[in-house]
């Protein structure tokens, strides 16, 4: 039953993504690509790209889109419900206890502990994304001759614009998209 599997996968992604939307990326990568084999690396990056271009939380965008890719409209709806449901339950439980005891220090302490690990997890998902963008795949071994120099330049310019001029993600997506459309079509 694909719908049940989708629901459970995304429920698990929702319940484990501590620290905001980007924290769901390594979980989506592990569950959908490695464990289930539902989407490819390339599709994962496409999903990310479209999520950056559209409004709304990235985890919801990614759930709707990959659910759709895997099992049509119903798949998208079910994946979205699955990824949201843990929030609905846990947030209200926390709010209930907070209004009752006015104290969250232990929960916040645990979250503080998880945060550095989450950064590392996003970084390791970032490695896959980076390798795929630069070399076309992320499987070892990688030959230096496979490198896509246009991609390297786009990456460097994009990172520079964000760090130096605080460019927003959507601006970076638009600029690299237009540049890609022109440069790759001419090559």
């Amino acid at each position: 039953m694909i719908y049940l599997e989708l629901f459970l996968s995304f429920f698990q992604i929702g319940i484990l993504s501590f620290g905001g939307g980007y924290a769901s990326l390594p979980l989506i990568e592990q569950e959908l690509i490695t464990v289930q084999g539902w989407i490819t690396n390339q599709q994962f990056i496409d999903i990310l790209t479209l999520s950056e271009m559209t409004p709304g939380p990235i985890a919801i965008n990614a759930a709707t889109f990959s659910g759709n890719q895997i099992a049509g409209i119903m798949g998208g709806i079910i994946a979205t419900i699955g990824v949201t449901l843990p929030s609905v339950i846990i947030v209200q439980l926390l709010a209930y206890f907070y209004f009752k005891y006015q104290n969250l220090s232990i929960v916040q302490g645990v979250i503080q502990g998880v945060r550095p690990a989450v950064v590392a997890l996003i970084a390791s998902a970032g490695v896959t994304i980076f390798m795929t963008a630069m070399f076309g795949h992320s499987d070892w071994p990688i030959a230096l001759s496979e490198i896509n120099w246009v991609s390297v330049i786009f990456f460097a310019v994009g990172l520079f614009l964000m760090r130096k001029f605080k460019a927003s993600p959507i601006q970076i997506i638009l600029v690299t998209g237009v540049a890609g459309g022109i440069v790759y079509s001419l090559l």
């Binding site: 950064v119 246009v150 994009g158 970076i172 600029v175 890609g180 459309g181």
Partner: peptide
């Protein structure tokens, strides 16, 4: 495909920036 290929490098830069 060309547009998405360009955006792929942009997404990599966004994630690296976030990290």
């Amino acid at each position: 495909n060309n547009v998405l290929l360009g955006m792929q490098a942009g997404v990599a830069a966004i994630i690296v920036n976030v990290v």
